[in-house]
Design a protein around this nucleic acid. Structure first.
Length: 424
RNA sequence: GGAGGAAUACCCAAGUCCGGCUGAAGGGAUCGGUCUUGAAAACCGACAGGACGUGAAAACGUCGCGGGGGUUCGAAUCCCUCUUCCUCCGCCA
């Protein structure tokens, strides 16, 4: 959430940055106008309350002395009426302002690429050249069915479209990748391993920015409680520290979280319908950091390196792009996407993204830290990155490691996990 | 699923029946001091924090006893509701 006070004081700068995303943010001018009235009311209400507190105390005193207090009670009673009326108006205004702020995305960082579509993203680094074949490579949906390691037909029988059964060495590959990625980040990179709940409440979804704007993307649990299937480990993991004040020594906090993610993919009907690129359910290993403000961009770069390491070890061709303002996620100020080479798409396809939300989520989630015992609490910065999307990694391995005879070679680093070097 | 109990400041804990000098006793921890060669002990002192508003600032005000609402001139205290935790029974991996 944006800070109302800064929005009020830097309105032009805020709007200029927001406009880089595209869309109309002029409603924020209305918010500022309401905020003026809000503060007016607060002054009035508080003066009345001070008076009421004072007078009520007198009533207690006089009563004990046996004096008549009926007149003074009537007087305070009418003060109460005034307060009540003002507070009704105040409540409406607060709700309006709060909602508008909740549906307003984070400010794009000043130095990120301008532009509105993914064509405006800028490639900043590249690892290996796209894989070449001396035969006609198969897309993973054909390859996997031939090898009987993915079963799309039966998954639709069990559940419906966009779900998949992993089978045999396909299932083992998925499971081993989760272990491989988690080991890498937990043991080599120093992140603390987390397996959070896969069902989250509404407060958590609001805190990280999924709600209220993107409710349609979530799977709601039919229940009298407001619960949702986890859409990304970012949600439960950031919310671990909701409403907490951390100490200086605790920061940075680094978590690597494994979750199964569930998404409606409401806005993507008809896209990536073949294979397991876009599913309602997929596994992901995530990286999450809570940092001091002055360190967050240094930590972002480090997280990118940690994330890239997965693909480097798997020896898969990829590139990193710096997202332009229009392609930026709702809560983020800056994002790098890691895109892996997919022969079936004949292009690079997103397999992870690494972002800095700065204090946007921390403000929504009320996560602060104190530099010392006596210092004023400040909001932390939150970062999250993929480490990586497991299903898409399976796809990348299948497609890039396929061989002429229709088998799939296992990347060397995975052989100890897989206990085999080939899927046939 | 059934029956009970609890939630008070960093921690423990009194106050809740009977509403008003209680924004909250007492203890522990922590910090500062006295004593000591140093430390411990003892003694003295300090100790809500935070959010919001006014203000150039100093400062002042409002909110705040798990969350939200209500009654009342006035709520930690009365009423409603939600959440979390604990105990027992049942069921279950």
């Amino acid at each position: 959430m944006l800070d109302l006070k800064s929005l009020r004081e830097n309105t032009k700068e805020y709007l200029d940055l927001l406009n880089l995303r595209g869309g109309d943010f002029s409603y924020l001018l209305e918010v500022i106008k309401k905020d003026e009235r809000r503060r007016e009311i607060i002054v009035l209400v508080e003066a009345e309350k001070a008076k009421r507190n004072e007078t009520s105390k007198l009533i207690g005193l006089y009563k004990r002395e046996g004096k008549d207090v009926s007149q003074i009670m009537d007087q305070v009673s009418s003060i109460g009426e005034d307060i009540k009326n003002l507070e009704v108006e105040l409540k409406d205004i607060n709700e309006f302002i709060n909602y508008q702020l909740l549906i307003t995305p984070n400010l794009p960082k000043e130095d990120i690429p301008r532009g509105l579509t993914e064509d405006d993203n800028i490639e900043i680094k590249k690892f290996k050249e796209p894989t070449t074949f001396d035969f006609e490579p198969l897309p993973h949906w054909d390859l996997a069915v031939k090898l009987d390691i993915l079963d799309f037909e039966r998954a639709s029988k069990i559940t419906g479209s966009r779900f998949t059964v992993y089978k045999g060495l396909g299932a083992r590959l998925e499971r081993c990748l989760i272990s491989f990625m988690t080991d890498l980040h937990a043991i080599e990179h120093g992140y603390t391993e987390i397996i959070p709940p896969f069902i989250v409440n509404k407060e958590s979804m609001i805190a990280t920015g999924q709600f209220p704007k993107f409710e349609d993307d979530a799977f709601k649990v039919l229940d009298e409680r407001d619960l949702y299937l986890n859409p990304t480990a970012e949600v439960p993991t950031i919310n671990m520290h909701r409403n907490e004040t951390l100490t200086n020594d605790e920061l940075p906090i680094k978590y690597t979280a494994f979750t199964t993610a569930f998404r409606q993919e409401a806005g993507s009907a008809g896209r990536d319908t073949r294979g397991i690129i876009r599913q309602h359910q997929f596994n992901k290993v995530e990286l999450i950091k809570f940092t001091k403000p002055e360190n967050s961009y240094k930590e972002l770069e480090e997280m990118l390196v940690n994330s890239e390491k997965v693909l480097k070890l798997l020896d898969l061709p990829y590139r990193v792009v710096n997202l332009c303002a229009g392609d930026l996620g709702f809560s983020m100020r800056k994002t790098y996407d890691i895109e892996v080479w997919l022969p079936s798409y004949n292009t690079y396809k997103e397999i992870g993204s690494i972002s800095n939300a700065e204090d946007y989520q921390a403000r929504r989630a009320n996560i602060k830290f104190k530099r010392s015992k006596d210092s004023k609490p400040e909001f932390v910065h939150t970062l999250n990155g993929s480490g990586l999307a497991v299903g898409r990694t399976v796809v990348a391995i299948m497609e890039n490691y396929q061989q002429k005879d229709g088998t799939i070679k296992i990347p060397d680093v995975l052989v100890p996990y897989m206990k085999t070097n080939i899927i046939k």
